[in-house]
Design a protein around this nucleic acid. Structure first.
Ligand SMILES: [Mn+2]
Ligand SMILES: [Mn+2]
Ligand SMILES: [Mn+2]
Ligand SMILES: [Mn+2]
Lengths: 223, 223
DNA sequence: AATCATATTTAGGTTAACATAACATTTTTG
DNA sequence: CAAAAATGTTATGTTAACCTAAATATGATT
């Protein structure tokens, strides 16, 4: 394994390669690597028994590939937790360092770190941290964009993307906020939501249409 | 910069390349890399303005090279401190993880980590941790092997070598111990020392001739 | 001073991970 | 459904970092 192979595995995992097929283009764009190079690297992952590839159709992970990707996600998210909880990083600052650290993290280090952090179950963005034996609990996948006016939900998870997190930081929109959707502006305009926690009184936030697709929520139990 | 270039810089630094010239062979043996590859890499460091090279004579670091090497030592030793102080690693276990982590440690991470650890001045082996602005305090360089029978000294620093540390761990010989040299066995036999701290009563330790060259001490002030 | 041993450099070759460009296959669309 | 557009693959080339082996320089020994 190399850091590059690991990043390929992780992105295929994150693009849904555990269940469906992922396209060359998705990988190419996510990693900013030429399509031809992706084909080449994918064929190595196939040789290694970590992925399957049906030409022109797409790429998926094998069970072994999934296992490896999960452990990478575990390492990544443990480091994020460390950086935020212990070193006081901001949510938007954490990604680049974790992206590097994950590749030089032995199993011993991973488990020691997890213990040190109190074996956290979620990273600072709300993502689930897989356990050492690869158990990956269910997680939220309802986008804020899917809610309708009047719906109430808790912000459960944010995509791990620097630009998004910087934006949300700026408009002071946080993980854990309980919100009520007030209105949808037309033409892919922003979604206005009201913050429902005690501290926030009547405060509202406008979340851009695009950002609303990268914010995941748990809707309030029906009725 | 790449991890490999960084390791070359660091080893030249550790071999004394700040003041004298270091030979190709020393680097080659320390890194376990073929002599020809070392020549090649050194010429790249020279191109980068980090080292000077006089063919057949040797290699030294430029001021810029020294600065970079120091910051690497800083990162390495901060990680070692973290692993031992926070994650409860044994002294002999820290090296390999720190050797990797040092290469993926941004300046922000370095300084945050230092703060988190209370800005330590010494790594768990007793080595000095350079500060962010590259100040590198004086450190001990008198070897245990240089002491004579009857001399008293404090164990101040241990070379950062896994085999050595595992050995010292086994014979229960620690950093900080105050010792009195009892005897030198002939034919490069072990040095017998007595532990002088309260807890240890009359206990003695036999330190191998070879190991005694990798244990640095501060002798008790004359008389 | 000539020989021999050792250290160093140079030359030529390999592998991993990219790139670009040409070629092949799908998919979309008029 | 034919042509155009998009996507994917293959061919070829580059760079970093190694290697081995041959050539050369230095230093030690007779
Ligand atoms: Mn990564
Ligand atoms: Mn995260
Ligand atoms: Mn290293
Ligand atoms: Mn150390």
């Amino acid at each position: 394994m190399t850091p590059m192979k690991e990043d390929y595995l992780k992105i295929i995992f994150e693009l849904g390669g555990t269940s469906k097929m992922v396209s060359n283009k998705q990988i190419s764009q996510s990693l900013d690597i030429a399509a031809g190079s992706v084909t080449e690297m994918v064929s190595k992952l196939v040789e290694d028994g970590l992925a399957t590839h049906t030409p022109y159709a797409g790429i998926s992970l094998t069970d072994e590939g999934i296992e490896l990707a999960e452990q990478l996600v575990r390492k990544h998210r443990l480091w994020e937790t460390f950086l935020v909880d212990k070193l006081d990083y901001k949510l938007s600052e954490v990604h680049e360092d974790a992206e590097q650290l994950e590749h030089v993290t032995s199993d011993k280090l991973t488990n020691s770190l997890s213990d040190f952090l109190g074996n956290p179950t979620h990273c600072p963005h709300g993502g689930v941290i897989p356990t050492a034996d690869g158990v990956y609990q269910q997680y939220s996948h309802i986008m804020l964009s899917e809610l309708e006016d009047g719906d109430v939900a808790v912000v459960d998870r944010l995509a791990d993307n620097r630009d998004l997190l910087t934006y949300l930081d700026q408009i002071d929109f946080d993980l854990g906020d309980k919100i009520k959707v007030i209105s949808h502006a037309p033409f892919e305009g922003p979604i206005t939501v009201q913050l429902l926690s005690e501290k926030n009184g009547e405060e509202q936030r406008e979340v851009s249409f695009k950002a609303s697709h990268y914010v995941f929520v748990i809707p309030e139990a029906d009725k």
